[in-house]
Design a protein around this nucleic acid. Sequence first.
DNA 1: TTCAATTTATGACTTGAGTCATAAGTCTAA
DNA 2: TTAGACTTATGACTCAAGTCATAAATTGAA
Lengths: 200, 200
Amino acid sequence: MIQKELLDHYGAVEKRYEKSDVIFEVGTNAHYYYQIISGEVKMNNYNEEGKEFIQGFFKPGESFGEPPLFVNRLYPANAIATEDSVILAIKKDLFKQFLLEHPSEAISIIENLAQRLHYKAVMAAEIASEDPEHRVLQLIDYAINHFDLSKDDNGYLVDFTRQQIGDLTGLRVETVIRAIKSLEKKQMLKIINRKVYREI
Amino acid sequence: MIQKELLDHYGAVEKRYEKSDVIFEVGTNAHYYYQIISGEVKMNNYNEEGKEFIQGFFKPGESFGEPPLFVNRLYPANAIATEDSVILAIKKDLFKQFLLEHPSEAISIIENLAQRLHYKAVMAAEIASEDPEHRVLQLIDYAINHFDLSKDDNGYLVDFTRQQIGDLTGLRVETVIRAIKSLEKKQMLKIINRKVYREI
DNA sequence: TTCAATTTATGACTTGAGTCATAAGTCTAA
DNA sequence: TTAGACTTATGACTCAAGTCATAAATTGAA
């Protein structure tokens, strides 16, 4: 995350999006650096049959959609507000100028990209080679270790819906539901009134 | 790519690897920044049954394995020399010092990560949601547009084996062979004495 | 408060990618 | 030069995830 005060001198504007507003679409050119002030954003793709794949969720303080600012490519996915959100937007050229004049902030961008690349490397191998139960458990454990899941007496609460887990792992809802049930039977997970918990 | 001369002042050493030598393994800590001088490296994973997933190939001038230098994570995959290779290695701490003292080089790292993140976003959506023919064609078109495929009278030559295409897309060799045959029938590809060509 | 949409759930059936076997062509290192 | 490994190829069979239908519980917006 880059301090808002620093970005303000480079024409940063606060954009407001309502839940389910589209911030940018797959196949278009990148014009802005985006950093979330409040709300939540998801990046996703839809295939020809309308099946969704979720690239990731982004929360306050996080930036998204940088790659096409630095390499000559189009957006590989859509960005959609999943809640009413306020997002800081800086024009591409001004953002690049900012980085040149604040080189230490480049490390912040590197750390962010490094983190996302790590997630994608783990999930790509998982989706390409593992069975549903393995995929679901890997996603849950990744979320516990690297996202901000809350912990209580029952363990870590997995606050994804079954549908979201499916869209993150390339599985159908029914398959996720069955995988979670099976993992519960094997005592790898707990289901307490429909909520999923994991103890590590 | 960062100029070798710049890195030399930070304790860069040339490491030599023979074909199929392991450079680092999944689950271990990162100690070096790696940049290829000559040869080729692949990053991959093996699942429990030994099925391989190839995260990517890296060629002279390219760096690899940076994410765990910048975030506190373990390597998500193995790095293996696919040819006899010479690789520049700089100790993690010295590399970070280098970046602080040569801030403009950070852009080079950002561009590299951005490029790889773009590839992974495209392929993750592909592997999660598309059928074999779509996946194979997407990989080939991505390679044509963003890697260095040679073009001749027959079109772009796809210089991956069917097995490699499978390991890059999460498919079995037989499935790739059948997908390529079917794509040839649909005139999306040409097969000329076992080599695959694509005209765009 | 209510009604529609979403989420979790389960059973029966289908299907396409995986598996296995086999073989011919090609490459490569001794 | 040759033997073994790899690559491309094809057919038959299997099975696990997807599909479809249905329904109850929960959520949330009007």
